[in-house]
Simulated assay, not measured.
Amino acid sequence: MENNTGKKWFAIYTKPRWEKKVNSRLQEKGVESWCPVQRKESQWSDRKKIIEDPLFKSYVFVHINDDEKIKVLSTDGALQFVYYLKQPAVIRDEEIELIKSYLLEKDAHITVENLRQFRTNNKVVISKGVFMDAEGTVIKGGSKKVYVRLESLEQVLIVEFPAEHLHLKCEL
C-alpha cells in the first residue's frame, strides 16, 4: 500500500546483530526507519538485566520512496532489500501499524519464525485484544499460540493468546 507521500515500507537485511546500529545510521541520514524491539530479561553471570532485543533478527524496516533506495543500501551494515516475487518486498502500512500497536500492549510478547518452516492449517479469528477480529492461519502451535502470517516478509509472528481468545473461522 502506498500513502499520499509516495513512500512505502520495505524490509532490509542487516549484518547479524547490527539491527539497532543500522536503524540509528539510517535515521542520522534522515531516512525514516524502524527497528521493532521488545524488552526481555537477560541473565548475566552476576545479575539479570532488561534488554531491548530486536524483534526481527537481521531486519530493519524503512519508509522510503524509490529515490532513497541508494541512500539505504549505502548505509554501513545494510546488506540488501528483502525480496518477494523477485522484487523488493513492500510491507503494508497496516502490518507495520499492527506490530507497533501490539508492542505497546502490556506484557506483549512476539516470537518470530521463518514462514518456510511451516504448512498452512486452519483459519482462526482472534476475539480479544489489539488483534481482535484479525484472521490468521494456524500453521503450528498448541492451545496458546497462533502464527500470524506476514506474506510480504515470508515471516510468521508467533503471538501467544489464551485459547479462549481464538475460534475457528467458519467457511461457507
Rank of each mutant, 00 (worst) to 15 (best):
I12Q: 00
T14G: 01
P16G: 06
R17W: 15
E19I: 10
E19A: 13
S24P: 01
L26I: 07
K29D: 06
S33Y: 09
P36Y: 08
R39H: 07
K49V: 11
I50N: 12
P54E: 08
L55E: 12
F56A: 03
V60A: 11
F61Q: 03
F61E: 03
D66V: 13
D67L: 14
D67H: 13
I70L: 09
L79P: 00
F81W: 11
Q87D: 12
A89D: 10
D93F: 10
E94P: 00
E95Q: 14
E97F: 04
K100C: 00
S101W: 07
L103F: 06
L104M: 14
K106R: 08
T111C: 01
N114T: 12
N114L: 11
R116K: 15
Q117H: 10
N121I: 09
V124K: 07
S127I: 07
F131V: 02
D133L: 14
D133Y: 15
D133T: 12
I139D: 03
K140M: 11
G142K: 05
S143M: 13
K144T: 13
K145M: 15
V146T: 09
Y147I: 04
V148I: 15
E151N: 12
S152W: 07
L153I: 08
V156D: 06
L157R: 06
E160C: 01
H165V: 02
H165T: 05
L166S: 02
K169D: 01
K169Q: 10
E171C: 02
